[in-house]
Computed example of a mutant assay.
Amino acid sequence: MDSITPISGQSSTGEQSRASVKVSVQKVKGLNSFPAEEFLAVEEPLEIQLVHGPSNARAMKSISVTMRTPGDDFELAAGFLMTEGVVRDINDVERITYAPESMASAPESDAWQQSALPYQPRLNKVRVELSPEVEVSLANLERNFYTTSSCGICGKASLLALQTVCPARIRNSFAINANILYTLPSRLRESQSVFDRTGGLHGAGLFNADGKLLAMREDVGRHNAVDKLLGSEFLADRTPLRHALLLLSGRASFELLQKALMGGVFMVASVGAPSSLAVQVAREFDIILVGFLRDDHFNIYHGAEHIKGKTAV
């Protein structure tokens, strides 16, 4: 594992600037219009390549292309593989690098240079090399391992799939005070530096029971923000995350509860609504689930006894 360089896009030179781009716009207030400049969140594809197999017969396969905000790319790849059940331990991963062919400079033309929204193809392919002992099911990868909440597969099949691959669960002992819970959305929002410039990114944060922000990631994709966050903890060998609460800046879908389950998270809170299948996952796997978390109200969908300081009326 010493060969893994924990390069994250937003902490690398120049990568923070890739997360947003300035564009010229016309603003309209009432019937008056005027020119202005705005920042947009950058959205670019990231290809995740997997190198696997015994030492004498290594194979490489592109397993996913996701639209993401550049930054924390290694963590995104690691989090994706962990939450999809491809890797279970930090020792399953030998090396994470940018794919060599992605380092070549893109051809530049006058039109390219003058574009208001420049596409930067460099650093858009990440290669994850697994240990030779790790067995990979290509059939699972080709069907993306799980369905998403927009797929047609039934909820029962999705829950059964999770039961076969999720980490061993222990009794849920996480608890938090309601007064602390109310403070978390603003703390997450205050930490979102790119959102401040663009207004267009989802955030995911890990908090302890005292309300301390442990880590935060943001991305144009809700699932990417969670993969980056859980991937950073996986690469730091801090999973399963039984001591932490996962806060989502948007809604809680089946896919995000699946990722929380695979990361060993015991509580998920979202500013938005959960889906019906997300609630089923929470109840099936004993994940405390809170939705519509705002300044003075929230809904508890599972695990009410774990939230202290409230009074029944």
Results as ranks from 00 to 15, higher is better:
280 Q>R: 14
29 K>V: 15
33 S>G: 02
202 H>Q: 11
100 P>K: 15
45 P>N: 06
74 F>T: 15
240 P>I: 11
157 A>Y: 09
132 P>W: 00
273 A>T: 08
126 V>N: 12
74 F>K: 10
188 L>W: 08
222 R>Y: 07
181 L>Y: 02
162 L>V: 09
208 N>C: 10
49 Q>L: 15
161 A>N: 09
31 L>G: 01
102 S>N: 12
143 R>W: 02
95 R>H: 08
276 S>Y: 09
1 M>A: 06
161 A>C: 06
228 K>L: 02
146 Y>T: 09
89 D>S: 15
258 Q>C: 07
236 A>W: 08
176 I>M: 03
187 R>D: 08
251 R>Q: 06
108 E>I: 13
182 Y>G: 05
237 D>A: 11
19 A>V: 10
129 E>C: 15
270 S>F: 04
77 A>G: 08
144 N>P: 00
162 L>R: 06
62 S>Q: 10
303 G>R: 05
5 T>K: 12
176 I>R: 00
128 V>R: 03
53 G>Y: 09
209 A>Q: 04
132 P>H: 02
60 M>G: 13
119 Y>C: 11
74 F>M: 10
183 T>W: 05
187 R>L: 10
200 G>V: 03
55 S>C: 14
261 L>Y: 05
59 A>R: 09
58 R>E: 12
172 N>G: 07
217 R>M: 03
248 L>V: 03
103 M>S: 11
47 E>G: 05
265 V>M: 01
218 E>F: 08
312 A>F: 07
224 N>L: 06
95 R>L: 12
230 L>E: 00
253 S>C: 03
46 L>I: 15
290 V>Q: 12
265 V>D: 00
289 L>P: 01
303 G>P: 07
62 S>R: 14
147 T>I: 11
284 E>I: 04
182 Y>V: 05
118 P>G: 04
50 L>A: 11
73 D>T: 05
194 V>Q: 07
292 F>G: 13
292 F>M: 14
268 V>Y: 05
140 N>R: 15
55 S>W: 14
106 A>I: 14
254 F>Y: 15
75 E>H: 04
240 P>K: 04
254 F>K: 12
264 G>R: 00
83 T>E: 05
152 G>M: 11
105 S>Y: 13
240 P>G: 04
78 A>N: 02
153 I>S: 10
97 T>G: 03
126 V>P: 08
58 R>Q: 09
36 A>I: 11
34 F>C: 02
31 L>E: 09
139 A>W: 07
61 K>Y: 12
20 S>V: 13
195 F>K: 11
293 L>Y: 07
254 F>T: 14
204 A>G: 01
248 L>E: 00
45 P>S: 06
199 G>V: 01
201 L>R: 08
267 M>L: 02
290 V>M: 09
7 I>Y: 09
148 T>K: 01
